[in-house]
Design a protein around this nucleic acid. Structure first.
Length: 897
RNA sequence: GGGCCGAUGGCUUAGGGGUAUAGCGCCACGUUCGCAACGUGGAUGUCGAGGGUUCGAUUCCCUCUCGGUCCA
C-alpha cells in the first residue's frame, strides 16, 4: 500500500473523502490539473492548474495578496487569537529535544508532541481538545537548501491545530471551515486565492485523506484526517480519529509581507542589522525577480546548483551582482537560521557532539563558522543570539532563561572547531601520498580527520564509495545483546511489594517454575531495571542469582532446585544490599540536580548505574569536569542531605505529570506506561522513576564523588559512593594520604642521602686521583685503588676490586685519571647485591689499541655475564663473585701484555 | 567499551639497552653608577608507578595510574 494507491482510491470517491460543508456552502469547484491531473478545489472559475503548475506561483513576492502585514511574531499572535476565539486551548510548545520518544532525537512535527509509544503501538495523549500549538520543529534533511531557496529552514514553527472528534472536538467540516476563515478573515486573503488540493497521508499502520491548502503556489498548511487502519482492500475506522493540521508559521508571515524570501520577515530585526553591517545593497528590483525565479525553479530541478544557475540565467543577473548581493545574503540567511535552531536545541538541553542528534548541531555550527570564513564576514555570535532571543521571547518567553547558557555552549563549540581545524591541518600536512580507503578509516577513527575535510582540502578528489560501508563493518562485529525468550504466556502480572510496605521477609505463592527460574504471585525483590541492580536474597532457602522483568512479570533466577508450582515459599531480601542500592539511587537524583545547578541547564542524565557499594551517573556536559566542579557538585549534594528533605513518591497520569512538571521528569528515559511514578526531592529534583528510594535525604548521610571521566563527546561519568561506603571511602583516602605523606618523607630522606653521597664522591675523586698520579713508576695503592705503571710506551693499569665504591665513583675517577694520563686503562670491579659489575675507562691514546669495550666483554665473560661499550668507556657485569680475582688478572694480562 | 598518542630538572623539550640533551628560567661571578643586554661558570633529574627480560632498562615487554585525542 503506497500513497499513490490510496490517493487514487480516495479521489475516485471525492464525495466521501474530500467534500466538506465549506465547499458546498461557498460553491467550490473540483478540478483536475491540466498538467498533472491532481484534483483540487477552488472558487476561481478561471483556474485550470493545481498550485504547483499555475502561472501565479510565487507571485506574492513583491505583491502580497492581502493588505495586512504580519511578521513572524505577529503572525502567531493572529493565529493564536483566531483559534482561541474559536474554543481552542493554546498550549506552550514542547521541547525540540524529543525525550518522550526513543525513536526520534528531535521534534519534527507538532503531532509528535502528543504521541507516546507503548510497546509497538503509538497512542495519542492530548492535554486539551481542540488545541493549537506553536511547535518548533527541527529538520536537517534540506540543510543545503537553507539560505538559498528563500523558504527552507533548519527549524520552523509548525502551527499545530489538533482535534479529536468528540463532544469537545470536531472533524473535517469544522476544521476546513476554520482554516478557510483563518486565511480570509484573520489574514485578509481573498477567497478566490485559496486552493485546496486532495492528498493522503499514511504512516504507523493508519492512514487518511488530507487537504493541502495553497495561496499563490505556496503551501501554507495541510490538514490530515487520520481515520483508517488496515489495508486498502479491507480497512476500518480507527477508534480514535485525529485531526493533524500542520501549517508553517514562517509561510503565513511571508505571504502577508511579500518579501523576496521568508528569511526577510521571520527572524526579526537581526536580518536587516546584518545586511547593513555587511553593506549589501538589497535592491528589490534585483531580489524580487531572482527569488521568485528560484522558488519556481525549485520544483523543476533536483540539483540545487542547477536551480541557482537557471535563476541567474533567466533574471540576467551579472556575476558581479551575484557575488556582491546574492551570495553574501545567502550566507547571512544561513547563519541566522542555523543560530536560531541552535538556540532552541541548546535551550532544550541538546549539546553539539559527534554522536546522534548532537552531530547535526555540530554540523550546523561548523557551517556557520565556515560560511563566515568563506565570505569574510565578522559577526559577533553573542550579539546575534541576543537579538534573536529578544525577538523570539515574544512567542517563547522560556528562551530568556537559557540565554547565557546558549552563548556559553556556542562559544565552547566554536573554539573546539578552531582547534580541531588546526589539528586536522597538521595531520593532513604530514600526509605524503593520497590515502587509500584503509588509511582514510585510520585517519577518521584514530585522528578524527573526516573524509569530508580531506575532500575540502583537496587531499582526495572523491570520498570512496566503500568508505562508509567499511566503517560500519568495523563496528558491526560487536556482540548483540542476547534476547531470552521465556515461556511466560498466560502468566499474570507480579504484584510488586516494594512499591507498598516493602517487606524484607514475605511468603509468596509459586505461579510457575522451570529450569532455574521462579515466578511468584508477588515479590519484594527489585528486578534489574532503570540502571538499578537487582536485589539479592533467597527464595525457599535458595540463593537468588538474578532478577529480571519481562513485561510486568518478575522472573527470579535461583541457584539449586526450584520450588514446585503451587507451593508457598518464604522469601528473604538481602537488606544490607538493598539499603546500599537504595541510598545510591536517591543519591543519583541528588547528584544529577546538583550537577545541573553547578554546571548549567544543559545537564541531563544520560544513563546511570546503581550497585550496593558504588554507583555512577553519566550526565550530558560539554567538557571534562575540573576538580573545582567536582567539589562544588559534591558540596551541593551533601547540603541537600544535610537539609533532611523528604523524598516524596506519587503516581500521576502521564499527561498530567508532563504538564505539571515538564519534560525534566524524563531523566532516566522514556516511561512506557500510562501512569508514571514521580519521585521528588522537595522541588529540587522531580523525576519519573521506578526505583527504590530513601524516605528522607538525611538517610544517605554522605555522598562522595570518587572519580569523574569524560566517556564520550558530550557525556561525563561521575562515579560516587554514599552512606557507609562514602564514610569508608573518606577513611581510606585519609589513610592513603597519610601513607603517601610518609612515603614522600622517606623519598625526601633518600634524596638527601644520595646528594650527600654524590657530594662526597665528588670531593674524594680529585684527592684520590692526585695521590695516584703522583706515582711515577712501579705501583702504589691509595684507598684500595692500585696504580701500576708500565714501561714507557706501554699501557698503564689502574684498578680496584673494593666494594666500597659505586658506579658513580668509578666513572668519575676513571674519567679524571684518563684525562690526565692518555695511556691509562682504568678498571673498577665492585659487588652490587647478588651481582658483580665492571667499569672500564681507557685513555685517549691507549683506547685505539686496547678498547674498553673489548676488555669489558672479556672480563664479563669470566664473571658469567656480558657487557660492552665504546673504546673509551664500557661497562658490564656478571654473577660469579668468586671469579673476581681471575677477572682482574685477565684484564691485567690483556692490557699489559 | 575500543583505538591512537603522550608522561624526561620549575617550564618547554632531544634522545634512545651502556656517563641523560638543549633552550628558557634560577644562582654566582664578570662587564656596568645601576638596570637591561652580554660573557663565564654553577645548581637542579631515582626519565609517571609496579613487575619482567638483561651483567646493565629512562630506552624493550607486560600491568596499572594520570593526561590528551579519536571512534562507538
Amino acid at each position: 500500500m503506497n500513497k499513490k494507491e490510496i490517493l487514487e482510491k480516495f479521489s475516485a470517491d471525492p464525495q466521501r473523502y474530500y467534500n466538506v460543508n465549506l465547499f458546498e456552502d461557498q460553491g467550490f469547484e473540483r478540478k483536475s490539473c491540466n498538467e498533472c491531473g491532481r484534483f483540487f478545489w477552488t472558487l476561481d472559475s478561471e483556474r485550470v492548474n493545481c498550485p504547483d503548475h499555475s502561472d501565479d506561483t510565487y507571485s506574492f513576492i513583491g505583491d502580497p495578496p492581502t493588505s495586512k502585514r504580519f511578521d513572524y511574531t505577529q503572525s502567531w499572535k493572529e493565529v493564536e487569537s483566531f483559534f482561541v476565539k474559536n474554543n481552542h486551548t493554546s498550549i506552550n510548545r514542547y521541547p525540540v529535544v524529543c525525550r518522550w520518544r526513543d525513536d526520534l532525537y528531535f521534534t519534527i512535527a507538532s503531532i509528535v508532541d502528543f504521541q507516546r509509544v507503548m510497546g509497538s503501538k503509538v497512542v495519542f495523549e492530548f492535554p486539551a481538545n481542540p488545541l493549537v500549538v506553536p511547535q518548533t520543529c527541527l529538520r536537517f534533511k534540506d540543510l543545503e537548501n537553507v539560505g538559498v531557496t528563500g523558504r527552507h529552514f533548519s527549524s520552523f514553527c509548525m502551527i499545530g491545530q489538533h482535534s479529536i472528534p468528540n463532544e469537545n472536538g470536531y472533524w473535517k467540516d469544522e476544521c476546513v471551515d476554520l482554516d478557510f476563515n483563518l486565511l480570509t478573515q484573520q489574514f485578509g486573503i481573498a477567497k478566490k486565492e485559496i486552493t485546496f488540493v486532495e492528498d493522503v497521508w499514511e504512516g504507523g499502520g493508519s492512514f487518511g485523506s488530507s487537504l493541502e491548502y495553497f495561496v499563490r503556489g505556496l503551501e501554507l498548511g495541510n490538514a490530515v484526517f487520520t481515520e483508517f487502519q488496515g489495508d486498502l482492500s479491507n480497512y476500518k475506522t480507527l477508534d480514535q480519529r485525529i485531526i493533524d493540521m500542520g501549517a508553517g508559521l514562517e509561510r503565513f508571515a511571508w505571504i502577508t509581507m511579500g518579501t523576496p524570501t521568508a528569511y526577510d520577515c521571520c527572524f526579526g530585526p537581526i536580518t536587516q542589522k546584518l545586511i547593513q553591517k555587511t553593506g549589501i545593497d538589497t535592491d528589490s528590483s534585483v531580489l524580487v525577480p531572482y527569488f521568485t525565479e528560484i522558488a519556481k525553479n525549485l520544483e523543476l530541478y533536483d540539483d540545487l546548483s542547477q536551480v541557482r544557475k537557471n535563476a541567474i540565467k533567466t533574471t540576467g543577473l551579472s556575476d558581479e551582482q551575484i557575488n556582491r548581493i546574492i551570495t553574501p545574503l545567502e550566507g547571512i540567511y544561513l547563519i541566522i537560521d542555523h543560530i536560531r535552531t541552535l538556540i532552541f536545541a541548546i535551550s532544550d538541553g541538546a549539546l553539539p557532539s559527534n554522536v546522534g542528534g548532537g552531530y547535526n548541531l555540530r554540523i550546523m555550527l561548523r557551517r556557520i563558522v565556515s560560511t563566515m570564513d568563506r565570505l569574510k564576514l565578522k559577526f559577533d555570535l553573542d550579539e546575534i543570539i541576543d537579538i534573536q532571543i529578544d525577538y523570539l521571547k515574544n512567542t517563547y518567553p522560556e528562551l530568556e532563561k537559557t540565554r547565557e547558557d546558549v552563548k556559553e555552549i556556542i562559544s565552547i563549540e566554536t573554539g573546539r572547531y578552531d582547534s580541531s581545524k588546526q589539528r586536522m591541518q597538521k595531520i593532513v600536512s604530514k600526509l605524503d601520498k593520497e590515502p587509500k580507503v584503509e588509511d582514510l578509516i585510520t585517519l577518521y577513527e584514530s585522528d578524527g580527520v573526516t573524509p569530508e575535510y580531506l575532500k575540502e582540502m583537496k587531499v582526495i578528489s572523491e570520498i570512496p564509495s566503500t568508505f562508509y560501508a567499511k566503517l560500519s563493518d568495523l563496528h558491526q562485529s560487536k556482540k548483540q545483546k542476547e534476547q531470552v525468550n521465556l515461556p511466560l504466556e498466560g502468566v499474570p502480572d507480579t504484584e510488586l511489594l516494594f512499591y507498598g510496605d516493602d517487606p524484607r521477609e514475605f511468603d509468596a505463592k509459586v505461579l510457575k517454575s522451570f529450569e532455574n527460574f521462579v515466578i511468584l504471585d508477588k515479590t519484594a525483590f527489585y528486578a534489574r531495571g532503570g540502571g538499578q541492580e537487582p536485589d539479592h536474597g533467597s527464595i525457599g532457602g535458595q540463593e537468588i542469582i538474578d532478577i529480571t522483568k519481562h513485561g510486568n512479570v518478575v522472573v527470579h533466577e535461583i541457584k539449586g532446585n526450584v520450588p514446585k508450582e503451587g507451593d508457598t515459599v518464604s522469601c528473604t531480601v538481602d537488606s544490607k544490599r538493598r539499603d546500599g542500592i537504595t541510598k545510591n539511587h536517591t543519591s543519583t537524583h541528588i547528584i544529577n540536580t546538583s550537577a545541573r545547578s553547578v554546571l548549567g541547564s544543559w545537564v541531563w542524565q544520560h544513563s546511570a548505574f546503581k550497585e550496593e557499594d558504588h554507583a555512577r551517573l553519566d550526565i550530558t556536559h560539554h567538557s571534562a569536569l575540573t576538580n573545582d566542579d567536582v567539589k562544588k557538585i559534591e558540596d551541593a549534594a551533601n547540603s541537600i542531605i544535610e537539609k533532611s528533605i523528604p523524598v516524596k513518591i506519587e503516581n500521576f497520569d502521564r499527561g498530567t505529570a508532563e504538564q505539571k512538571y515538564g519534560f525534566r521528569i524524563y531523566q532516566g528515559g522514556v516511561v512506557p506506561v500510562k501512569s508514571v511514578r514521580i519521585v521528588s526531592i522537595g522541588n529540587l529534583d522531580i523525576e519519573a522513576c521506578g526505583g527504590t528510594h530513601v524516605v528522607n535525604t538525611s538517610d544517605i548521610e554522605q555522598i562522595k564523588i570518587t572519580k569523574t571521566k569524560r566517556i564520550q563527546d558530550g557525556v561525563v561519568r561521575i562515579e560516587f559512593v554514599s552512606g557507609d561506603s562514602a564514610k569508608e571511602f573518606v577513611k581510606k583516602k585519609q589513610q592513603d594520604s597519610e601513607s603517601k605523606e610518609k612515603e614522600e618523607k622517606v623519598k625526601e630522606q633518600e634524596k638527601e642521602k644520595r646528594i650527600e653521597q654524590r657530594q662526597l664522591t665528588k670531593e674524594r675523586i680529585p684527592v684520590i686521583a692526585k695521590s695516584l698520579l703522583e706515582c711515577k713508576q712501579g705501583a702504589i695503592t691509595v684507598d684500595d685503588i692500585t696504580m701500576e705503571l708500565a714501561d714507557s710506551g706501554k699501557a698503564n693499569f689502574c684498578y680496584s676490586t673494593s666494594n666500597n665504591y659505586d658506579d658513580v665513583f668509578h666513572i668519575g675517577l676513571g674519567e679524571a685519571l684518563c684525562n690526565e694520563d692518555p695511556k691509562l686503562v682504568y678498571c673498577g670491579l665492585f659487588e652490587q647485591g647478588e651481582k658483580i659489575r665492571v667499569i672500564v675507562y681507557a685513555g685517549e691514546d691507549i683506547s685505539k689499541e686496547k678498547s674498553a669495550g673489548e676488555i669489558v666483554k672479556s672480563i664479563s665473560q669470566i664473571l658469567g655475564g656480558a657487557g660492552g661499550g665504546s673504546p673509551k668507556f664500557a661497562q658490564g657485569g656478571g654473577i660469579d663473585k668468586s671469579k673476581k680475582e681471575d677477572a682482574i688478572k685477565n684484564a691485567k694480562s690483556m692490557i699489559i701484555e
